[in-house]
Each structure stands twice: as C-alpha cells, then as structure tokens.
Amino acid sequence: MNENTDNIIISCRNLDKRVDTAEGPLDILSGVTLDIKAGESIAVVGVSGSGKSTLLGLLAGLDTPSAGEVRLAGETLTALDEDGRARLRARHVGFVFQSFQLLPGLTALENVMLPLELEGRAEAGVLARELLARVGLESRLGHYPRQLSGGEQQRVAIARAFATRPAVLFADEPTGNLDAATGARVIDLLFELNRERAATLVLVTHDEMLASRCARRVHLDAGRLVSRGA
C-alpha cells in the first residue's frame, strides 16, 4: 500500500440509504460523512437498528447508497459497477462477520485458502496453514465448520480475513454469537493481527467495551452520525 498513515483510506460524503417499505420510504442512513485514516481502528456503535451494518455494507462496497459518495483506497466506489467493486474488495478488503460465514462444504484450511485461490496464489496452502497456526488452530485444519465451536469458527474467519493482507478489515459484530470469554479471546486475536499487519479496522458493534478498544469511536443514532469520536 502506498498510503501512509496520514492518508485517508475510506471516506464518505453525505451518505443516504433509503428503502421502500409497506409503510412508505424509510431512511436508514441520512447525511453520513466520515473519513477513516489508513491504519486507524474505528468502532461504529449504536443500538440495534441504528444503521451500523448498513453503513458497513456501504463502506465495504457490498451495497450502494441512495445518495452520497464513498471512496475506498483511492477509488470512488459509487462510480464502479458491482464487478468493479468486487475486484476492489478482492484487492483491499477483508471481512469478519457475526455469523462467521464459513462455507459448510469446505474444511477450515480450505476456507482460509479460498480468498488466496481466488487471487490465483500458488502458495495458498502454505499461507493458510501459517495463518491457522497463528490463530491457534493448527490441529483443526481438516475440520468442517460444523465440527468446530463458535470461537474456533470465528478464528478461522479471522484467519481468512487476513489471508490476502487486506488494507482494510471490516468486522460486523464479531463477538455477537460468542460468549464473553470466547469473545474476548477472539477480539484479542483480531486486534493483534490488525496491529501486526498494519491494517485499517472498521468494527461495527453495540458493545461499548469492545468499542473502547478502538482508537476512535463514532456513534450512530437513527441513521445519523452523532459523534465523530476522538
């Protein structure tokens, strides 16, 4: 990555997301403007339904806004089509989800190899093994997701997220499906890896404790950004 830490890696301007419902249009996000520096860790907090996950989806290019503009790694996401955004994700973005999102038909190792294989990397197996060892699952390589505990599944997901050395890691309630102790260990791991790899971390959570571990916090309330944080 060329950007130094002062560079803005993600920025959005006047972001709106409106959906049509049976009761008329519903504003999920309105007028969100936010800059995130490379290497920064930022928590997006808010109660359930405040629009956190929607914002994450828009910043990561998984969805398109009703109005406004998103830039990611120097490219305007809103100007790209879905395939263009997919290529951008492949190059710069990693994800960790609340529900792990491991593919049930693939083993732990194969799940981690997948993004590397999508890039066509020959050493996918070696890299994936290293990463799984890094998250403490070297003895679980051949296990299928259903044979792993929730904490183990999330560790596999973290290994997968870092496999392609993404500039930005998006985490959506990464501990939401885990008990407190397991969640804490998973988060430790997430922050460690993030530090090691100097990635930008965008974390969505309703857990204030978790949010406090990030360098910056922004608060969403009913689709509006109410504090930009420190």
Binding site: L62, D83, A86, R87, L103, G105, L114, L118
Partner: peptide, 16 residues
C-alpha cells in the same frame, strides 16, 4: 446462495 455471496464478498466477479 451463501457460497456465492461469500465468494462475491471475497471479490469474485459475476463472470467468475
């Protein structure tokens, strides 16, 4: 569906 969504998320294009 889930597999495709995940692959898309990981950067696979529609052609892929």
């Amino acid at each position: 569906y889930d597999v495709s969504a995940m692959l898309r998320c990981l950067g696979a294009t529609q052609r892929d």
